[in-house]
């Protein structure tokens, strides 16, 4: 009987240890999930630009300031914020200059509208210019043929007259 009780106690203890270990592993795994990786941070950082050192994407910027901002992204990811929420935070705090593309609002629309319009206008002007360059040439070519034709007909008349006069002399 004593042996039986001891065995049960051993099983209970083993079960408790297993439960405790499972809990610890689960916590460790959860902690690892909660810390965003460098790749996750850089996926957002590369869409943002350093607010201090201009024209440098945040993921490759080597300064202390950029390291702090990357940590800020990591903290916000750990808090469960989405990519868009993090980008919105940066724009709200540091201005639209941190974005790789200007937001499509207000005056910024000019950036998206003016270049295509200018390209279309330029293409129209080029098309018209090329057409104008081609037309006079063809016109010249046409008049040249006429001139040649005129010249040959006048030559024929001259030869005819010359042959007639030569015949008359004979």
């Amino acid at each position: 009987m004593k042996n039986y009780e001891l065995r049960i106690t051993n099983y209970v203890l083993l079960a408790l240890v297993l439960i405790a270990l499972t809990g610890l592993f689960h916590q460790a795994a959860f902690a690892q999930e909660a810390t965003p990786t460098d790749d996750e941070v850089n996926a957002i950082a590369k869409q943002l630009y350093c607010p201090v050192c201009e024209n440098t994407p945040l993921d490759v910027c080597p300064t202390e300031a950029c390291r702090q901002w990357r940590e800020l992204i990591r903290d916000q990811l750990a808090e469960g914020k989405t990519e868009q929420e993090i980008k919105d935070y940066f724009v709200a705090n540091y201005g639209a200059r941190v974005l790789s593309e200007p937001p499509r609002t207000g005056f910024n629309w000019l950036v998206y509208i003016v270049p295509p319009v200018l390209i279309l206008v330029g293409a129209y002007i080029l098309f018209n210019s090329f057409r104008a360059w081609i037309k006079p040439k063809s016109a010249e070519a046409g008049s040249g043929q006429k001139k040649e034709a005129g010249a040959s007909s006048s030559d024929d008349e001259y030869i005819k007259r010359l042959e007639e006069e030569l015949k008359n002399r004979k």
Partner: peptide
């Protein structure tokens, strides 16, 4: 404080 993070 010029262009900084709140924590910093």
């Amino acid at each position: 404080d010029y262009v900084d993070t709140p924590e910093g």
